[in-house]
Computed example of a mutant assay.
Amino acid sequence: MINIRNLRLCDGLQENAEIQNIKKILGLQHGKEYDNVKSLRYGHLMIMADQDHDGSHIKGLLINLLHSFWPSLLKVPEFVQEFITPIVKATQKNSNNVISFYNMPEYEGLGTSNGKEGAEYFVDLDKHKKDFVWADNEDGEAIELAFSKKKIEARKTWLRALQAGTYFDSNEKHIPYHDFINKELILFSMVDLQRSIPSKVDGLKPGQRKILFCAFMKPIFQEVKVAQFSGYVSEHSAYHHGEASLVGTIIGMAQNFVGSNNISNLLYPSGQFGTRQMGGKDHASGRYIYTKLTPITHHLFNKADELLLNYLSEDGQSIEPTWYLPIIPMVLVNGSEGIGTGWSMRRVLSPVTFQGSHEHSRIRLQSSSINRQYHHQRKGESKPHSPRLPQAEK
């Protein structure tokens, strides 16, 4: 599913399998106004997505699809619905009493539920079924705010105004579209930013930080298969996403061709990790290539600084820190790029020097500062000189 707002039919929309299947299954006619569902093949569209932030994104994309092409359907009572499942289930010791929770930071996907639990959900359908309702024009404005490319600046203001503890009460039977956008989808947008934009402190995204954490914890001084290491990372760092993405991140951290990593690939590439000509996409499968920590990684991330790190906790286990403390600013050294909600980043720097100008002070990284005192005796900070690049937006 893609964000179809502001796209035309000729932009590949007709080739999108998910959208075409939804049109075919429901019997939707392009450009038709609907004040009831009599002409459709089904009277309801029920969204059954995982109870995590990515599930919220899927719900938002479907609502955005309807609002873009068939906005009248959003106003039909009880047409758009969602099916929710428990996020956490607590069982009393020596008892069959089970308490389900629907508003918790942890989550489980639909695949986690077994057949017995699935039957229980459908027996009590009213408890798990929620109806989306159109209240007023504020609903349409909220949907446009979240997905329109014309609302980039407004979207930034929207995200900045998010308050801690925001969530949608699962006890509510009806969900106004603007409440879904402002109390649920906004949480995905914040997580999307955290995943996509690297930290200024260590230059890493959360997935990369989890990999480095597990590389230090194992530790991988001897070569290990990338596919095998990805399983270790998934197990010991509470990684909740696909392993194909994790393997791709490990490979990216080990690539050393020109244009990939300037000062250091943090992991060693043993095998075919891709070439400059193909931008690294021609790497071998994770089953056939190996990696390990490079010697310089332990110098960049000094073990003596571990006492300063704030390690996170998830699913009852200690995982990676909020950020590491490299002895030099890795976000400037290796550069980084990412596209989040409202913001994007692309920083590609010279592997030799940071050239200053009249607008930007010169960055001086003296060899004497490349030690643990870097964090206590900084000589100064400035922005590197680089050409302005166009900002991409999701």
Rank of each mutant, 00 (worst) to 15 (best):
Y102L: 01
G12P: 02
F257D: 05
L74I: 08
L389D: 13
I186K: 13
F180V: 05
G340M: 04
K149M: 15
T249I: 09
I175R: 12
I152Q: 14
N21I: 10
S199R: 07
L266V: 09
L162N: 15
V76Q: 02
P198R: 11
H178K: 07
P390H: 06
R5A: 09
A392F: 11
T249C: 11
K93Q: 15
H67F: 11
H53W: 10
V224A: 09
Y167E: 14
L9D: 11
N3W: 01
N94Y: 13
N114W: 09
E117M: 03
K129C: 11
F168M: 03
S350H: 11
E359M: 12
L7W: 11
D305M: 04
T341M: 10
P206H: 07
S189V: 03
K23Q: 02
A49R: 03
N114K: 08
G203V: 04
S230T: 12
W343D: 04
A254C: 06
I181R: 09
H178V: 03
V331E: 06
Q255S: 05
L28E: 02
Y374S: 14
N265T: 13
T294S: 06
E117R: 07
F69T: 00
N97F: 05
K210I: 08
A90M: 06
E33G: 01
N103A: 14
Y290H: 11
M217P: 01
H178C: 05
T341P: 01
D126Y: 02
Y177Q: 00
N3E: 05
A238F: 15
S369M: 08
L187N: 13
S386F: 14
E33A: 09
H298K: 05
I25Y: 03
K149L: 14
L325D: 09
P269C: 09
N103H: 03
G252R: 11
S100W: 09
